[in-house]
Simulated scan of single mutants.
Amino acid sequence: MNILTKRNIITLIVICILIIAIFLLSLNTGTLHIAPLDVLQTLIGQGTHQQELILFDFRMPRMIVAILVGAGLALSGAILQAISRNGIADPGIIGINTGAGLGVIVFVSFLYGKMPVDSFFSVFVLPLFALVGALAAAVIIYVLAWKQGVTPIRLILVGIAVNAGFGALLLILSLKMSPNNFQFATIWLAGSLWGTDWKFVLAALPWMLILLPLAIYKARFLNALNLGDPISTGLGIHVERERAKLLFISVALAGTCVAVAGGIGFIGLIAPHIARKLVGPKHQILLPTAALIGSFLVLASDLLSRSLLTTTEIPVGVIISALGAPYFIYLLMKTK
């Protein structure tokens, strides 16, 4: 079946247009409003020094981080849903994000005084700590869920339990922090897109440039795994090896996103479901569509977080959770 149908192409174009529109709108929205015409003039090098500072040093890196994080979390969730054959799998729900967060909080707790979290070296070390934490969570979930194989329902239930346990450890470490570190941890846990300068873009970009294309390249294996292990084996696929590779890609994507954006949940749940309704189940088109939808959702949520209240900024994770929690309940009610 041809996946690049006219409808699918139009869908991708429309989502891209929406992302560009939200991106431009976000550039002129904030504490200091910049008119759309001034934004365009600044982008072509004819703005004031203040406008260039605001757009290029503060807002634009934040928007790029939002795009990368949305795409990464969406693909991570789509991969988890495919390898577990469970529509409610999500890195935030089953504990992958919390494991990555625990890695970040361990870094902040023990190395923050010697190495400020926003220093150049720390920015590039943070994704490694997040990856280790996410991998630890994934291994624990997989081992505990294994009982002559891994069933979708066991994976979800064990993941929720591990998520709660890691969350408790994370809270204990947070309470033992100094006031400054605790403030950082609180903001980070809410999912605040805290990494908002070019250092964080440079820290996340290499991982994303490798992992995003690799995930899309593995789409045919995801299609096969959706058919079940016996059929996948009959097609000549080494099921456990490919599942392990795909799980690592999903965990690495989630860990990188958590390192630069904090505890943002539900994107990996919502974006793949919307993409599936729009373009169908084939992962060759589902994955890029989900990535674009995830980017749009995070960008739009970030815009809302800076626009709803004039006196303060709502964490992006709170906006997304307000949208994602009802949808998760709806999926649970539909799941047999």
Rank of each mutant, 00 (worst) to 15 (best):
L222I: 10
S321C: 09
R59I: 07
I264R: 03
A145G: 04
I264H: 05
P127Y: 01
F58R: 13
T5P: 06
Y142E: 04
P281I: 08
E242H: 14
V279D: 09
N28C: 12
N28R: 11
A164K: 01
F124D: 05
G195H: 10
T310D: 08
T335L: 14
L304W: 04
P213F: 01
V14I: 15
R85H: 07
S178D: 13
G72R: 06
I93G: 11
M63A: 12
I79E: 06
V298K: 01
N86Y: 00
P230W: 00
A190T: 15
Q51P: 03
V316N: 13
Q51F: 12
P36E: 04
V158S: 07
S232I: 04
A78P: 13
I153A: 10
M333S: 08
I329F: 15
Y327D: 02
V125I: 15
R220I: 11
T5R: 14
I329W: 05
M63T: 02
L309K: 15
I19V: 11
I216Q: 04
L170G: 01
I3C: 07
I3T: 13
F166P: 10
V298P: 11
F184I: 08
I172N: 10
A137Q: 04
V318H: 00
A322P: 09
I285S: 06
A82H: 08
N2C: 00
T289S: 05
L173T: 08
Q51I: 04
F266T: 11
L131V: 14
Q81N: 12
G191P: 13
V69T: 14
L308P: 11
K6M: 03
A100C: 06
V258C: 02
C16V: 13
E313F: 07
I94C: 04
A271P: 11
R241W: 11
